[in-house]
Nucleic acid binder design. Sequence first.
DNA 1: CGAAGTATTGACGGGCGTCAATATCAGTGG
DNA 2: CCACTGATATTGACGCCCGTCAATACTTCG
Lengths: 280, 280
Amino acid sequence: MEYQSTVTDHSGEGTVASVLADMRQTARRVRCSLPTGTSMLCGNARHREDRAADSEVIVGGAPSRDIWFIRSGILRLQCHAYDGRRQILSLFLPGEVVGFEGEFREGVSVETVTQSGLCRIDRRAFDAILNGNDELRAELFRQKQDQLDRLHWLTWSLGALSPDERFAAFLAMSTRFMPCDPLPDGTTILSMQLPRADIADLLGTTVETICRINRKLSESGVIEIKDPSHFRILDLKQLMALGQIEGGLDRMVRGIVERRSRLDDLMGPASGSAVCNCGS
Amino acid sequence: MEYQSTVTDHSGEGTVASVLADMRQTARRVRCSLPTGTSMLCGNARHREDRAADSEVIVGGAPSRDIWFIRSGILRLQCHAYDGRRQILSLFLPGEVVGFEGEFREGVSVETVTQSGLCRIDRRAFDAILNGNDELRAELFRQKQDQLDRLHWLTWSLGALSPDERFAAFLAMSTRFMPCDPLPDGTTILSMQLPRADIADLLGTTVETICRINRKLSESGVIEIKDPSHFRILDLKQLMALGQIEGGLDRMVRGIVERRSRLDDLMGPASGSAVCNCGS
DNA sequence: CGAAGTATTGACGGGCGTCAATATCAGTGG
DNA sequence: CCACTGATATTGACGCCCGTCAATACTTCG
């Protein structure tokens, strides 16, 4: 739970006026097609924090003045019961804003899954910016919608699908928001960023079951296991069919791809964001 | 899917100006403590629709100009796979506004569970009202938060709890948003508004399992089954313990109770809303 | 090299989904 | 009033998936 924090400068710069000035400056300086507000959010080094894996970002039930912008890495929204059972409710990805929607409930928290680059924003300053920036507000609205859609999928799959189906769907979707390398033969190497325990707690099952499903998939030729965190996707169609993804992958991961590419456009692919090079 | 609709008057009254006039009129006429916008929404008979059970209200994937205010009854948000599997993602209750948040995704739909009294509102008119009414906007924000919290609970319970535990928790929570009659001895008679199939599809299990759990609970003396839709709650504490509700019921059903009482204050308990007389 | 963390594989058993039969009730028409 | 029909709820029997426990590989630290 200890986190290595590299805040460069934090001396009372979070005021509305200064951040608005940032926005105007950054909007002039950066040439990119995304809402100026977003570029402001990650356009300078102030308020940045580099977090190790499994570091606590938001703890539910306690009022917080902070809003977070994810520059790189993956975060998880999770529930804990007192007896230790955990359920991951959602993943947050680069380009997304977390903590805007009032408080999280007690027992709910947000932690990093991987090492992550975050940007801390003062809530009042953010609200002020939001008031004057329709584009940013629209982007935030889209993000909330996307996150809600993902939560709907998870709820649906937990209630209606079997662990095999859920994992197959998760693998298929992962090719859109996790690092992967396309091979000349059309297959791709997926670099799984989540450890087994997180996959299991996200999909409502156990690490053993995940391993067994993994093996079954590789035996049936759908994937090939290079090493515990690298899968070669041999038959994406099959994977989607197993995962009951009828409407196409793009509908399932709406918003993620665009945000990722805009982010890379802004910060460069070397920034550590979860790059995915898979074709459509 | 046929619905009996009793729209009293629908002759082009959904304009911004007329609805705003309604709001001002209603705000003057009705004495109540809830946001004036909400009283406007149900304060007159226009745009009202009385729906039978299992009637389609919103079908996802298609843009709609309609927003719905629930005066009475229970609605369900659900997912359908092409093979027929269904998962109920959430219930909507009297006093809540549905359909405001952009579009629902394809495959997702909203239907009535019970006979319901709805009020149809034009989206643009609603937006216009929202712009000028901070109280209504705040109420809507609270509602979205409450609905998200409920979805979080469902996801959490589907992933981390067993069917027994989920059903116990659901029963306990039902005492706060479904009709129940308190008895002199401290127990209450809960009138279950959902048929078994809906309970099963909400809790991610089957009707048979629901029945078996029901019987187990009655054999262990936690509840008493009066008839298929009436349970006598003998030991609410035990029910909450089984359902892993540590933080108290009120946190789980936040917002529902207040909205219900305000609604009854406005429309009278005879309006058909799901009244719950249980003490706190 | 030892230790700790993570992933994998095997063995076992119960929970729960599936199928089928029956009970109960509401509505309809004779 | 009863027979018939359809919908819903309940109960039983069966079997397998998957959670639990345990042992073992594999990697990464010190």
